[in-house]
């Protein structure tokens, strides 16, 4: 069985590299390296994995966690990297949801819930694939996804007036 060729690689990078980087960003401060190493490892697989995208998410997760262990040993460097980190999302074209708001609400989620949301919304994985990824049952993943979306909805609903409230009060005070 042949390995992954260049065309298949370009397709994977164009369609899933950003989601993979966002997925790795939850654990490490250099997600690009984790994605790059995972792609190299994918190209070395012979035969290639049956579900390459799910395999990539698993590999990126493992490599990001390994990077995190190394970063924890260098806590000061990690703090500096966290202070000057890049934004998670590209600037939104519409003003419906801003990147900073989504980052803020995602960071408030439980790590497992956040992992499930990222894998589902931006990674476009099925619940079965996510269940394999997080080593839980599919129904469990489904319930937690609903629960995480509810929490996000509540946060966004509550933050919108609260974020407008200080500015309004500031305007009034001024």
């Amino acid at each position: 069985m042949s390995q992954i060729d260049e065309q298949q690689l370009r397709c994977i990078v164009a369609g899933h590299a950003a989601a993979l980087a966002l997925y790795a960003r939850q654990w490490c401060s250099s997600p690009d390296d984790a994605v790059q190493e995972a792609l190299i490892e994918l190209l070395e697989q012979n035969p290639p994995p049956r579900d390459a995208i799910a395999w990539l998410f698993t590999t990126v997760r493992r490599r990001a966690l390994n990077q995190t262990r190394g970063e924890q040993r260098r806590s000061q460097h990690q703090q500096r990297a966290a202070a000057g980190r890049e934004p998670w999302f590209q600037p939104a074209l519409d003003a419906n949801l801003t990147s900073a708001e989504v980052e803020a609400v995602l960071e408030r989620l439980d790590p497992t819930d956040r992992e499930i949301v990222v894998a589902k919304v931006w990674g476009e994985l099925s619940f079965e694939q996510i269940a394999t990824l997080v080593q839980r049952s599919s129904s469990h993943v489904h319930r937690r996804y609903h629960h995480a979306l509810s929490i996000l909805h509540n946060y966004l609903q509550s933050e919108t007036p609260s974020s407008q409230q200080p500015s309004a009060t500031r305007v009034r005070t001024l």
Binding site: Q3, I4, D5, E6, Q8, L9, R10, V13, A17, A18, A19, L20, A21, L22, P31, D32, V35, Q36, L39, I40, L43, E44, E86, P87, W88, F89, Q90, A92, L93, D94, N96, L97, S99, V102, V117, V121, W122, L149, L152, H153, L156
Partner: peptide, 26 residues
């Protein structure tokens, strides 16, 4: 909410595509 979240595009990682393509070419 899910639809609105999906409209946000994650940042593209900076990958060494030349190296990956060379590896893919064997």
């Amino acid at each position: 909410l899910q639809l609105r979240l999906q409209q946000l595009r994650p940042r593209q990682p900076q990958l060494d595509l030349a190296l990956l393509e060379r590896l893919a070419a064997g």
